[in-house]
């Protein structure tokens, strides 16, 4: 009996591992390609494991046509992406947490309606927003600025954050608040001193989502940013490929660069992510 269970267990382990390797294969292939020498790319039959590791693709990305202004300003794309993502993450998590707290702690008329309105704003696809936003923002000089793009991302990230935090605050016993009120706290200080510190794991999870969503967004960024002053990484990547369609290795190298911050962010906060996401669901 014990023996059978053990065999069954290792069967599960091996199967899970196999499936996941297969699952991650496309990603692994792209990462390998970025580090291959040029003559290993697109050969028949495919060379699975790179025979030699080289950083050529990255070097040519950064040193591309150094004597003209154009090239691919990978550095500024990255810096713009970081600024836009951080700015929008901080503010949207701040605002979303406030809204989430309001939804979880107070019952008022129009509660469900306002909640749904906020949620549904997330369901509006980018194609419907792009051009009107462009026309609106150019009047106030917000087109092609980091701030303008960050503002758009704040709006996009608020609904999800509010929803997540709503679930989180529900989880925190109301009795804590009541105790605080008895001690003479007002709403603000109860929120600030009691509930917010307890909700930090939830905010961490919300931050991951907001950060990744901003970091990866392409559609609106492609309309609202135009120059290396504000262009983000996904837009830069698209330009790169539209100019050099056949350079798959360069594309792979750029992908790897683009993944770096996302990887760091996800790995650092991996456990928080699961906790944060599911915390609210358990009791609802």
């Amino acid at each position: 009996m014990f023996q059978r269970q053990k065999i069954e267990q290792s069967f599960y382990n091996i199967m899970a591992f196999g499936i996941l390797i297969l699952f991650a294969l496309p990603a692994i292939w792209v990462i390998f390609t970025a580090f291959r020498p040029a003559n290993e790319v697109n050969v028949t039959p495919p060379i699975w494991i790179p025979q030699k590791i080289t950083l050529d693709a990255f070097a040519s990305l950064f040193g591309f046509n150094p004597d003209i202004a154009a090239g691919v300003p990978v550095g500024s794309y990255m810096w713009n992406s970081i600024r836009v993502s951080l700015l929008s993450t901080i503010i949207s998590v701040g605002l979303g947490t406030m809204a989430g707290y309001a939804f979880s702690r107070f019952r008022f008329r129009g509660h469900t309606l306002v909640f749904l309105l906020i949620m549904l704003s997330r369901a509006v696809p980018g194609v419907a927003l792009g051009l009107p936003l462009f026309l609106l923002m150019r009047q106030y000089g917000l087109v092609d600025t980091v701030h303008g793009l960050a503002l758009v991302y704040i709006a996009i990230n608020i609904p999800f954050t509010a929803w997540l935090m709503d679930g989180f605050f529900r989880q925190i016993p109301k009795e804590l608040d009541e105790a605080a009120y008895i001690d003479g706290c007002n709403h603000w200080s109860a929120f600030w001193r009691i509930d917010l510190p307890l909700a930090l794991p939830g905010m961490a999870a919300a931050s991951i989502f907001a950060f990744l969503a901003s970091w990866n967004e392409y559609q609106l960024a492609s309309l609202l940013t135009k120059t290396p002053v504000a262009k983000t990484f996904p837009v830069g990547l698209f330009d790169f490929t539209s100019q050099f369609t056949v350079d798959w290795r360069g594309m792979a190298a750029m992908s790897v660069l683009m993944m770096l911050p996302a990887i760091a962010f996800v790995i650092l906060t991996q456990r928080r992510l699961t906790e944060g996401l599911t915390f609210g669901a358990i009791k609802g």
């Binding site: 605002l95 979303g96 406030m98 809204a99 707290y101 309001a102 939804f103 702690r105 107070f106 008022f108 306002v114 309105l117 906020i118 704003s121 509006v124 419907a128 927003l129 009107p132 936003l133 026309l135 609106l136 503002l151 758009v152 704040i154 709006a155 996009i156 608020i158 609904p159 509010a162 007002n186 709403h187 603000w188 929120f191």
Partner: peptide, 28 residues
Amino acid sequence: RTTWFPFILIAPSLIVIALVVIYPVLYS
């Protein structure tokens, strides 16, 4: 006075969403 509290908390979010989502949708 405190009945305003949830609205103060929600208002900033609503304003941003109104500007970035609702206004463009109405315009569309």
